[in-house]
Amino acid sequence: MNVFRFLGDLSHLVAIVILLLKIWKTRSCSGISGRSQILFAIVFTTRYLDLFSNFISVYNTSMKIVYITCSYATVYLIYGKFKATYDFNHDTFRIEFLLVPSAILAFLVNHDFSPLEILWTFSIYLESVAILPQLFLVSKTGEAETITSHYLFALGSYRLLYLLNWLWRYFSQGFYDLIALLSGILQTVLYCDFFYLYISKVLKGKKLSLPA
């Protein structure tokens, strides 16, 4: 495991924990898209089905369990415990527009036409666009709390770091996976606009607000 891969995992973990803590401490999930969180729960569930059949390392297994557990906990906090603070009116992105094309594409373009492989591919495609409901929510309300911005920045950095990891692996081991690579590029590109706003505003101490 190279440093980019490790920092990527760490960044992903930080993002997930920031979100959970934000909701827990403020007792509110306003500004957070429950729909994106449902998509992430689906992503982790379909990707880590090999959890019990395919052992890689203690690190790998524990991270998978932490990601899955945290994503379900987040969904529970939004739709259960702090439901009263959830922004139903603004979180209106139609997730079937992401789920259906990802599923169709996973059936058409995959490495191997087997159930586990298709589900893994589906999770990769879905993850690349799963943040769209959240970005849609931010653009609809025109602003994001600073802590939400930190969450989005950590979550976006994770795939960017994985891209560097794949570049590293390509040159050092000749390893590459086009499905993961192209999806990872799309996923990172979707965050570019946000990265720009984050660096130009949030890091200078201002709240992230979009121009009217």
Binding site: H12, N54, I56, S57, H111, E117, N165
Partner: peptide, 10 residues
């Protein structure tokens, strides 16, 4: 060597 990502990455 392709299609190994799922085995060791997250």
């Amino acid at each position: 060597q392709v299609a190994d990502t799922k085995k060791d990455e997250l």
